[in-house]
Design a protein around this nucleic acid. Structure first.
Length: 561
RNA sequence: UGGCCUAUGGUGUAAUUGGCAACACUACUGGUUUUGGUCCAGUCAUUCUAGGUUCGAGUCCUAGUAGGCCAACCA
């Protein structure tokens, strides 16, 4: 009952209006229509969440329809990847459809169109047709083939279908209006000859329908009520409706196309063409490289489906240009990971600490809470000994009061362990600090309840015992582009803004409980960030990816100085 | 020079359809904290401009301005 009335986006307003003016709940049906020519990215995730979200909200089926009308670019590999990504996001489609399933029906409808005198076979080159097309400010001129007889058109189109012509010799065009202010209505091409094998229909067809002669029909066949697409298809709507006019029956539901603005993410690109270029140029290791804004890249980076769905929900959907800041995506990653990721200790830039008053050869196993945000997460044991690693940035010989970490003569709490005091340090011949000597207070053990253990010390450091630590490869990722809008510059190519330091690989020293970590498992390395186990991991040879850092107030303070 | 779309804080979306501009993020303050994390509290807007209608305009009208899309046998 306490369902707070969430405000509706403009698509939901349209649906609510339709429901008021006669649509029944059962008539609602949606679809997500990817072209299988690349991997899904974060922009698609928004569209997926919109369509499947609508399906959940209105308890309506959502089809997955592959828009596979162009055999030149489409492959089964992409079909499989797309299905995997949608499932991973947690959505279930009703029917799995393919535009290619409708090739015969589309062909029959095209024959009907020709017989109705509304389509003709044009036998000019693409250059000639382009010249006749006019410009946005000038009308086009009619093709010399525009008035071929129905018989000749039918015969030619059948011969196109039978493979009697080379590519480019003939096309089928709709006969609409060469003077339309909408360029798409100037006798658009409906079919072209393509002597290519299709990933599903193989060589059954030599002619393939264009997008405009397939999409609305697919919606109609599947009885999709609301066909949602991005803004660049807005001019296509007039043609979408024209095509539907030629074949709809009043007994069946007529789909409607509505358009929303695609989501752009800062510091990256969301264009399949540009992502493909990053892959082909070797800037990244593949479509699922953790730096890629693809769904598979985000998954490998350690993002959770929940965080991506929450992100999509909060940025919403509208009709204006936008550039969503990545910090919002990162917020959602942290928000979810904070709740579910077990805390562990790992040192990525080690500095040796020797506790001079801790007995040599001794070790003890300390209690460590797995997740302060989750009482059911339990606890584990971490080994403590005389020789430890701490983070190099956590020690300074001298520092002001703002520096809460270890400095000579100063005290600090070792997380889950003891309070230590830095007494001295040793350096190599270049002046680099190579070891810090400390003393510890044996009565200050965490959780022991003693007066000493309850002492307030400003800083708490993470650490690992050198003798017990396991080594692992840790991949530190940063933004792929240095510019917030890399493809938003008219005179500069987006590739100029590639961040050359987007990947740094280090050897980390991890607490031994991580030895059995499995691929895909996510952790918080305390005080450092969230990390997950990469697919490249081998038994005894773990690889971690940094998903995102923790919020870092200290880094901000330092930046200001 | 044509047609169409869009304009609300640094960012992204809202605004009961003409009635006190709200939510989230970011940034900045402060508090709590055995993670400089989390959590809690607070601060940040002449709704693109100029007119008009109205008791009242982010919302309606007019004129500008800015940005985007449209001339692939791509989707």
């Amino acid at each position: 009952m306490a369902n707070e009335e969430k405000s509706l986006n403009f698509i939901e307003h349209i649906i609510e209006d339709d429901l008021k003016s006669g649509y029944s709940d059962e008539q609602l049906r949606f679809r997500f229509p990817p072209e299988p020519n690349g991997y899904l990215h974060i922009g698609h995730a928004s569209s997926i969440c919109l369509n499947f979200g609508l399906g959940e909200r209105y308890k309506a089926p959502v089809n997955l329809r592959f828009d596979d009308t162009n055999p030149e670019k489409e492959e089964k590999e992409f079909v499989d990847a797309i299905k995997r990504d949608i499932e991973w996001l947690g959505f279930t489609w009703d029917q799995e459809c393919y535009a290619s399933d409708y090739f015969q029906q589309l062909y029959d409808w095209a024959i009907g169109l020709i017989k109705a005198g509304k389509a003709y076979v044009d036998s000019q080159s693409s250059e000639e047709m382009a010249n006749q097309k006019g410009t946005p400010t000038e009308p086009g001129t009619d093709s010399p083939f525009r008035d071929r007889s129905v018989e000749e058109n039918v015969s030619l189109f059948e011969r196109m279908k039978n493979g009697e012509f080379e590519e480019g010799v003939h096309v089928l065009r709709a006969k609409i209006d060469m003077a339309s202010p909408n360029m798409l209505m100037r006798d658009p091409i409906l079919y072209r000859v393509l002597n290519k094998a299709h990933h599903r229909t193989n060589t059954d067809w030599c002619i393939y329908p264009m997008y405009d002669w397939a999409h609305g029909q697919g919606d109609y066949i599947e009885q999709v009520s609301h066909s949602l697409c991005t803004l660049e298809f807005l001019p296509h709507r007039e043609l979408y409706d024209w095509c539907l006019d030629q074949l709809v029956s009043s007994k069946k539901l007529r789909p409607k196309q509505r358009e929303f603005a695609r989501r752009n993410l800062s510091h990256t690109v969301v264009s399949k063409r540009k992502l493909l270029q990053l892959v082909n140029d070797g800037v990244v290791a593949g479509w699922d490289d953790p730096r890629m804004p693809t769904i598979s890249g985000l998954r490998r980076r350690g993002y959770t489906p929940e965080s991506i769905r929450n992100f999509a929900d909060t940025i919403g959907i509208a009709k204006r240009e936008n550039l969503v800041d990545v910090s919002l995506l990162e917020f959602h990653a942290r928000e979810h990971l904070n709740k579910i990721a077990p805390r562990v200790m790992a040192v990525l830039n080690p500095l040796k600490v020797v506790i001079t008053n801790y007995p040599e050869g001794e070790e003890e196993w300390l209690d460590a809470e797995n997740n302060p945000e989750d009482e059911t997460a339990g606890s584990r044991k971490v080994p403590f000994s005389r020789t430890l690693y701490i983070e190099r940035e956590d020690f300074r010989e001298q520092a002001n009061r703002k520096f809460f970490r270890l400095k000579l003569g100063g005290e600090v709490r070792l997380k889950n362990g003891y309070i230590i005091k830095a007494e001295s340090c040793t350096k190599d011949t270049d002046g680099n600090i190579i070891e810090v000597q400390c003393t510890y207070d044996p009565k200050s053990k965490s959780g022991s309840g003693t007066e000493e253990s309850l002492r307030k010390v400003k800083g708490t450091l993470h650490w690992v015992s050198v003798a017990h630590a396991i080594e692992a490869e840790v991949r530190i990722y940063d933004r792929l582009f240095t510019d917030e809008n890399p493809d938003g510059h008219k005179d500069r190519d987006f590739m100029e803004f590639v961040n050359r330091d987007s990947l740094r690989i280090v050897t980390g020293f991890l607490e031994p409980s991580l030895r059995e970590a499995k691929v895909g498992e996510r952790f918080q390395f305390q005080r450092l960030g969230y990390f997950n186990v990469d697919n490249d991991s081998k038994p005894g040879n773990l690889v971690f990816n940094r998903t995102v850092t923790l919020r870092d107030t200290w880094a901000k303070i330092q930046q200001k100085n």
